[in-house]
Amino acid sequence: MQIGDSHSANDAFSDQMRTALQQQFGNAGRGFLQPGVPFRYYHPAQVTVSSTGWSAVSAFSKTATGPWGISLVRQHADAPASMTITADEAGGLGRGMVEFLGQPGGGRIIVEADDGGRTVISTASSRNSDAMWLRMPTTPDTRSVTVSAMGDGPVDILGWEVGKGNQARPEPGILYSNLGITGSTIDILSKVDPGILSEEIRHLKPSLLIVAFGTNEGFNTTTNFDSYSARYEQIIQDLHSAAPMAGIVVTLPPDGVRQERQAPYARSCDKLAYGTRGFATPPALDTVRQAQTSVAQRNHWMQWDWRQAMADTTHPDGRCTILVWGARNPPIAARDHVHLLKVGYQQTAASLYNDLMNGYGLWSSQKHKK
């Protein structure tokens, strides 16, 4: 499970990881997704999602109130609404679950499979903010599932999970879920309801948590670095406490720069990226990297440096490489000098995959020696 900001919301990096791991260990399906269409330009790999009548409520909103689960988004409806998930390949929806919020006065939902399965359930509960799971009425031949609110009371969907095989015998292999919120920092995870998180972890059983925040902390002028390291560490520890059997990968942010016209460090990229002038790495981004490195080392968590994965012989530490990547023909980094394009995300994902597999190889060899 990869959790982070816009780099994780974009499925290019995570899908390259998903594809490589599934080729190595088997394709168990798409995994857990944010419900419906959580934001514009949402294009998850392996499935197609459509939605009508729902309102996305994000934990990133300053005015919206919880509760939220690990997806950090819920879809709300007071009137009739529907969302459909369709597998891009046969067998992709052999099994699945819908996570919804039980609440006083909650309305009914209908879950329908395209090959005839149909389930109706009330989301009414005497307890408020109670996460509940409903098994999708699927078969190995199911290609699409539609979740509908009937309009007879409020309904909130927290997420859905789909995979291959069937409910009794899941297809063995890898499920790789990416959950990202554009513009977010590590602090957004503090909004996850502990009770809901506990129930989600019990269902999803993630074996690896890839935590990928830092870009927005490094570009925000309001980040409080007096307490950042402690907050970052505590939030990941809380996440790990909910999933104690999961490994942790602390992912340092990729390279990012901005144009500085008056600051004394304005020319820090001039000698590293020819043809561009006045660009610099925000000093706070290096502060973020240092804090995350210290936290990872202190807790013996795996640390992966996204910027280092962008390095070349001219830029051995990866600094200012996003300008070089953006100037390629065709470019592999976006014009905002913060995000990568699909090929750039795929190239760096291959680096993380190789690092993970190197570690897996060492573990496997030591295990067999025993």
Results as ranks from 00 to 15, higher is better:
329 N>L: 08
329 N>Q: 13
329 N>G: 08
329 N>H: 13
329 N>D: 13
329 N>I: 04
330 P>M: 02
330 P>F: 06
330 P>E: 03
330 P>H: 03
330 P>N: 02
330 P>W: 03
331 P>C: 06
331 P>E: 10
331 P>F: 04
331 P>V: 01
331 P>K: 02
331 P>W: 04
331 P>I: 00
331 P>G: 05
331 P>D: 08
332 I>A: 01
332 I>N: 03
332 I>E: 02
332 I>M: 02
332 I>F: 00
332 I>Q: 00
332 I>H: 00
332 I>R: 01
333 A>K: 09
333 A>R: 09
333 A>D: 05
333 A>N: 06
333 A>Q: 06
333 A>P: 03
334 A>T: 06
334 A>D: 11
334 A>M: 08
334 A>K: 11
335 R>I: 11
335 R>F: 07
335 R>G: 14
335 R>C: 00
335 R>H: 07
336 D>E: 02
336 D>S: 04
336 D>R: 01
336 D>F: 04
337 H>E: 07
337 H>Q: 13
337 H>R: 15
337 H>V: 06
337 H>T: 12
338 V>F: 11
338 V>Y: 10
338 V>Q: 09
339 H>P: 05
339 H>M: 11
339 H>N: 13
339 H>A: 11
339 H>I: 08
340 L>S: 05
340 L>D: 00
340 L>Y: 07
340 L>G: 02
341 L>V: 05
341 L>A: 07
342 K>T: 12
342 K>H: 06
342 K>C: 00
342 K>L: 05
343 V>N: 03
343 V>K: 13
344 G>K: 08
344 G>M: 07
345 Y>S: 07
345 Y>T: 03
345 Y>R: 03
345 Y>P: 10
345 Y>F: 14
345 Y>K: 02
346 Q>L: 05
346 Q>S: 12
346 Q>E: 15
346 Q>H: 12
346 Q>C: 03
347 Q>I: 06
347 Q>R: 15
347 Q>Y: 07
347 Q>A: 15
348 T>F: 06
348 T>A: 03
348 T>G: 01
348 T>Q: 08
348 T>K: 01
349 A>R: 05
349 A>F: 09
349 A>T: 02
349 A>M: 08
350 A>K: 15
350 A>Q: 15
350 A>T: 09
350 A>I: 00
350 A>E: 12
350 A>P: 01
351 S>P: 00
351 S>C: 09
351 S>I: 07
351 S>G: 03
351 S>L: 05
352 L>S: 03
352 L>V: 04
353 Y>W: 10
353 Y>N: 11
353 Y>T: 07
353 Y>F: 14
354 N>D: 14
354 N>F: 13
354 N>Y: 10
355 D>V: 10
355 D>M: 11
355 D>Y: 15
355 D>Q: 15
356 L>V: 05
356 L>W: 12
356 L>Q: 07
356 L>C: 08
356 L>A: 09
356 L>P: 00
356 L>R: 06
356 L>Y: 10
357 M>G: 01
357 M>E: 02
357 M>L: 14
357 M>W: 10
357 M>Q: 11
358 N>K: 12
358 N>M: 12
358 N>R: 13
359 G>F: 09
359 G>H: 14
359 G>S: 12
359 G>C: 04
360 Y>H: 09
360 Y>G: 05
360 Y>T: 04
360 Y>W: 14
360 Y>V: 08
